[in-house]
């Protein structure tokens, strides 16, 4: 079990000590995500300046895979433009659904999620925060502090 393809060291580390795990007072975008199947909940906060994700953070509760994925998302996407974030999301999605290999693309740290593709039931865990971020970015600049009326679901 120690060399489990899914539970890589970095994933365990981020699940136990998630980075950017807080509410963001200066956020001007925010969305809630919910995985009906396992009850995982995530809120993603974004400080968007022009086209650039100046800062982002998350809160919530979930399994190791969804927590680590949200944590790494906040690390990887900070400072990226919306278009870059979109592109990385698609690459990440291809990776966890087994449509691409971690070596094939410059996935960086996100390559630790390549094992997810062997566990189709866990793809939703890995992608919950990403879908939620997308919803936050596509949403009209909203008054923060109010939850999006319809939480994002990965179903």
């Amino acid at each position: 079990m120690s060399q489990h393809s899914l539970y890589q060291e970095m994933i365990l580390d981020h699940s136990k000590r998630p980075r950017n795990f807080r509410a963001l007072a200066e956020a001007n975008r925010k969305a809630d995500g919910f995985n009906r199947l396992c009850g995982d909940k995530v809120t993603v906060f974004v400080r968007l300046e022009g086209d650039v994700i100046r800062d982002l953070s998350f809160q919530g509760s979930g399994c190791a895979i969804s927590t680590a994925s949200a944590s790494l998302l906040t690390e990887v996407l900070k400072g990226k433009t919306q278009a870059e974030a979109e592109r990385i999301f698609h690459k990440f999605h291809d990776l966890v659904t087994g449509k691409s290999h971690p070596e094939a693309e410059e996935m960086g740290k996100l390559a630790v999620f390549s094992g997810v593709s062997e566990y189709p039931a866990r793809v939703k865990c890995a992608s919950l925060a990403w879908h939620t971020l997308q919803a936050a970015l596509h949403q009209e600049p909203a008054a923060t502090g109010t939850a999006a009326p319809q939480p994002v679901s990965t179903e």
Partner: peptide
């Protein structure tokens, strides 16, 4: 400190 889905996936490996 361990989510049930992680427990089940790890037990499956056994």
């Amino acid at each position: 400190g361990v989510h049930p889905h992680d427990v089940a996936t790890l037990l499956d490996a056994e």
